[in-house]
């Protein structure tokens, strides 16, 4: 169910009251929307509520979908706006904490050279570990990231939204986006490293 033609057709069927179209849509999007919502609200129950509200808003707003943005972008924008307005985590985290921007300590010496160089595992990971296991680890680790890093990684690296879309959904600058991607990816990389080297 990718491609604009399919999306437009799906929306048409929805407008005509085709319940199967709705089932197809939620089957494809609900898991991703729930995962995204969890990056904005304090727990699973609230996330489920936000996503349900989002679907109702989507149905009520069907007439306003013009196909100018992709369906994904449209759904995510409605979701993120609703999630932000429930806002428990969001308001507290709007200013980046020191934790979000600090570099990890201890891996470099005073000259800036590696004091504890990365263990070489990238090739091993490709050869021996199935991608699935790493993906599971990455997904779990995402949930433990500081909120802003998690939101940025979810939208950009996991869902593949453009930088512009991410900046506008989260209301952050390009500079913040770069820092958050850098920090979040560094943490996930470290988590994958411990997954691979622990064997």
């Amino acid at each position: 169910m990718t491609g604009p033609a399919t999306e437009v057709e799906l929306i048409d069927r929805l407008r005509r009251g085709d319940q199967t179209a709705f089932t197809e849509l939620v089957t494809a999007y609900q898991p991703r929307m729930l995962r995204l919502a969890r990056g904005f609200v304090p727990n699973q129950a609230v996330a489920e509520e936000v996503v349900q509200d989002t679907w109702l808003a989507v149905l009520r707003g069907l007439e306003r979908f013009e196909g100018r943005s992709s369906l994904t972008t449209w759904l995510f924008a409605i979701l993120v706006n609703r999630a932000k307005s429930t806002g428990v985590r969001e308001s507290r985290d709007r200013l980046l904490s020191a934790d979000e921007v600090a570099d990890p300590p201890g891996r470099f010496d005073a000259t800036g050279a590696w004091s504890s160089p990365p263990e070489p595992w990238s090739e091993r990971a490709e050869d021996r570990l199935d991608a699935e296991r790493l993906a599971v680890r990455a997904r779990k680790h995402l949930d433990t990231l500081p909120t802003a890093q998690r939101q940025v990684l979810l939208l950009h690296d996991v869902e593949g939204l453009s930088r512009e879309e991410v900046r506008s959904l989260l209301d952050i600058t390009e500079g913040n986006l770069r820092v958050l991607l850098h920090r979040g990816r560094s943490r996930v990389r470290a988590a994958l490293e411990s997954e691979v080297t622990a064997r």
């Binding site: 709705f22 939620v26 609900q30 898991p31 489920e48 790493l134 996991v158 996930v188």
Partner: peptide, 26 residues
Amino acid sequence: QLRLTIRTLGHAEPEALTETALDDLI
């Protein structure tokens, strides 16, 4: 490693929709 990390994030599947959740949405 960083490239592998980003690729891995792009492949992370969300947890599948449960029957109950689907019923709620219907």
